[in-house]
């Protein structure tokens, strides 16, 4: 198993593209299919941008793991932003507190095999994305 992880600091919009690039390289190296790559990296992009837009900064760690006996890729994004008051509403399509259309959070959840959202109002939000490489 590969223990290598990549840490991306998220401060400016260009860092979102950097996070996409790192995730894409990791998936390329692991030999993931086009659909697995596109789905996962798109989710990474949404979550990374959320951290910058809502919390102004955050940190994303990308690494390989195991999910139900299959190799997987994991992205963990942590911010110290305002947190999410109503997580159920936030995961629903069409909910947005920013400039977006509110497809990002709920949409990302549908794009990955495992999605975890942990948030504390006033303290920050952590999102974990994981997908099997198949």
């Amino acid at each position: 198993m590969n223990d290598e992880t990549w840490t991306i600091s998220l401060r400016k919009p260009a860092d979102v593209a950097h996070a996409r690039k790192i995730a894409m390289q990791a998936l390329d190296a692991a030999g993931a299919s086009a659909i697995v790559k596109t789905r996962f990296v798109t989710a990474v992009s949404e979550i990374a941008r959320n951290a910058i837009v809502h919390a102004s900064s955050g940190v994303m760690v990308i690494g390989m793991g195991r999910l139900n006996g299959n190799r997987s890729i994991i992205a963990r994004c942590e911010d110290r932003g305002p947190g999410i008051v109503d997580t159920n509403a936030a995961l629903k399509d069409g909910f947005s507190t920013g400039r977006g259309m509110g497809l990002g959070l709920g949409g990302s959840k549908r794009l990955v095999d495992r999605f975890e959202l942990e948030t504390r109002v006033g303290e920050g939000t952590t999102v974990v994305l994981e997908t099997r490489l198949r």
Partner: peptide
């Protein structure tokens, strides 16, 4: 548009 991109956008509801 690539197939994988089309499928992903649809999943995002876009």
């Amino acid at each position: 548009m690539r197939p994988a991109v089309a499928m992903t956008l649809v999943e995002l509801g876009m």
